[in-house]
Design a binder for these strands. Sequence first.
DNA 1: TGTTTGACCACGG
DNA 2: GCCGTGGCCAAAC
Length: 110
Amino acid sequence: MTEYGYHDRVYAIVRQIPKGRVSTYGAIADYLALGSARMVGWALHQSILPDAIPAHRVVNRLGELSGRNAFPSPTFMQEMLENEGVEIQQDKVVHFETLFWHPKNIEHPM
DNA sequence: TGTTTGACCACGG
DNA sequence: GCCGTGGCCAAAC
């Protein structure tokens, strides 16, 4: 049965995040109506190992790379984002509000 | 089986 | 702008 745990839904959403854009735990949790952003963070922590999930595009509501410590190296997340053209400064996404992408805008970037 | 913790968020003081 | 509290659900102990 299509009995997806919410982490599967989180993966599905995160995979939709366009390159060069970022989203937040709260936005994903809100979109999935799971109730809490905490679950998203927990799910993502588990999701780093599986197939190519751009977990680096998920930051907290302040645009901070709160999950960088869960990556192979504390700077890995930042380097990935910078590689996509996202500016990072002091572990925060520059122009966060502009780059912010809400799952609501799936296939409707911008 | 109950408690604690977690890549969080919003609100109140 | 920092601290405490509630919420939300699952995993780890």
